[in-house]
Design a protein around this nucleic acid. Structure first.
Length: 114
DNA sequence: TCCATGACCGACT
DNA sequence: AAGTCGGCCATGG
């Protein structure tokens, strides 16, 4: 296999996990990395960055461990992410942070559907 | 191949 | 609670 194919396969796994984040909840990059068996959470960021627009993946439900949007707002991407989350009922505090104790997705090992 | 960068994280201060 | 630091490793020039 070429390195490209491997990376594509890893990305596919990442997308599979992100797809499971329920509406109204969020997950951190590290959380997704853990669920995918990846060591480097940055890879999750790369995967989402490379995400095709026609894939219907809830990429906006992935935030960093500080509870903040970790995307540059060039092209308004960060603003879009916040709008999408707010439209799903996720609330931000005055400093732009999400309370992870409230909104973090907590999947159970034996409950695939959530 | 070498080097810098990045949608990160955890520990420590 | 907020800032700093070292570690992580795929990607692109």
């Amino acid at each position: 296999l070429r390195a490209e194919s491997v990376a594509t396969s890893v990305y596919h796994n990442i997308y599979k996990v992100v797809e499971k984040i329920p509406l109204g909840y969020v997950a951190t990059y590290g959380q997704i990395a853990g669920l995918t068996g990846i060591r480097n959470p940055r890879q999750v960021g790369y995967a989402l960055h490379a995400l095709p627009a026609d894939r219907n993946i809830p990429w906006h439900r992935v935030i960093n461990h500080a509870g903040k949007i970790s995307l540059s707002d060039a092209e308004g991407a960060a603003t879009l992410q916040r709008i999408l989350l707010e439209s799903e009922g996720v609330q931000f505090d005055a400093s732009g942070k999400i309370n992870l104790n409230t909104y973090r997705w907590k999947p159970y090992p034996d409950a695939e559907s959530g």
